[in-house]
Amino acid sequence: MAPRMLLSMPLHAITEVYGVEGLRERFLLEVESFPPDERDQLVAALELAAKLHAGDRRVREPYLNHLLRVAIRIIKYYGVHDVDVLTAALLHDAVEDHPAELGMLAEGTHGELTEAAIAELARRFNPRVAELVRSVTNPQYDPERDRHEQYREHVAASLDRDPWARVIKVSDFTDNGVGVVHTTPDKAYSSATKYRPLVPKLRELVGRPDTPLSLEAKDHILDQLDLAEERFAAILDG
């Protein structure tokens, strides 16, 4: 893999051609100029994410692909080099998907497992990383209510109070929304149903003055939200 080629390729193209090793190499190229201690933190986060999600898949690909794309997008397209935000991006699903393994508890309630996992992230990295991950971690849902509605309520509430978590969530949403064409028809339909109603709220959050992104990055994200909405409409209305 030629470094210059990897740095110029779209993320889903790297995924299709080179897979997880290509995305991993692209990520390491993106952080090559970071200070050594920050690179060490990011490599540790990547290794932890790879270990926790080793057996996970997103329909047609290893789950780690998604985590790498979310982090790379934040660096490349949002211009964010905040090491804690990038660490949290790599681990944004760790607490939700693997709380027992991360928190090293054999059993416990949902809340106990979640808190143990959050505490472990604070111990391994720092409290800011842990709280960023908390902000993008879905709560336990009420089985008597619509899951998608509860998801959107949680996203709106958590991102309202945590501007930096918005950066992680919009990259996550872009990977799921714009990337909806890179999955199976059934998964595309369920994703479009889940995510389409969230687009207006994300637009509003991205446009807020306290969202810590440049105007160029915000414009890029808004264009991506428009594209996601077009794809949702093609799937659900077409």
Rank of each mutant, 00 (worst) to 15 (best):
E230N: 04
V206M: 06
T137K: 01
L213V: 07
R145P: 01
R124I: 02
R231F: 05
A116I: 02
P62F: 05
V95F: 07
P10S: 12
P209S: 08
Y77W: 13
A54S: 15
G79C: 09
L52N: 13
G55D: 15
I168E: 11
L64R: 06
G111K: 07
V155M: 10
A88T: 01
L67Y: 09
V95G: 08
E96N: 07
S191G: 04
A234R: 15
A217T: 03
H154N: 11
H66I: 05
L46E: 09
K187L: 02
R128V: 01
I221A: 09
E131A: 00
V181R: 12
G22R: 10
A50E: 14
A54L: 12
S8R: 13
L215A: 13
A94T: 08
A165S: 13
R24P: 06
E38Q: 14
L205H: 07
L68A: 11
E149K: 05
G179H: 09
F173A: 08
Y141I: 05
A192F: 07
R24W: 09
P62Y: 15
D97L: 15
A50R: 13
R208N: 05
L67I: 08
F27V: 02
L102V: 03
N126M: 04
I74M: 09
T114Y: 14
R26Q: 12
V17T: 12
D210E: 14
K218C: 02
L205A: 09
L227G: 02
V133C: 05
I72D: 13
Y141H: 12
D146N: 06
A50Y: 11
S135A: 15
K169L: 10
A234T: 10
H66V: 01
R73F: 12
H12Y: 14
E149C: 01
N138A: 14
V180K: 05
P35W: 05
E112V: 03
V133S: 10
G177P: 03
G207D: 07
R231T: 00
F34S: 06
I235A: 01
L205Y: 06
R24T: 04
V17P: 02
P197Y: 07
H53W: 10
P163N: 01
L198M: 13
H220R: 12
H154A: 08
L11R: 09
V85Y: 05
H53M: 11
L159P: 09
R124Y: 06
A13L: 15
A234H: 05
L48H: 04
A100E: 15
V95L: 11
D210S: 04
V85L: 14
L132S: 03
E153S: 08
N176T: 01
A100T: 11
H81M: 04
Q224C: 07
A122Q: 10
T174G: 09
M5C: 01
I235D: 08
D97C: 06
E107I: 00
Y189M: 09
R73V: 07
E144A: 02
V170L: 14
E30N: 02
E61K: 07
Y151H: 11
V83C: 07
E216N: 02
T211I: 07
L132N: 10
T211C: 14
H220C: 05
D56T: 05
P35A: 12
V129H: 10
A122D: 13
E229V: 00
E120L: 00
E101T: 00
R124G: 06
V206S: 07
A130C: 04
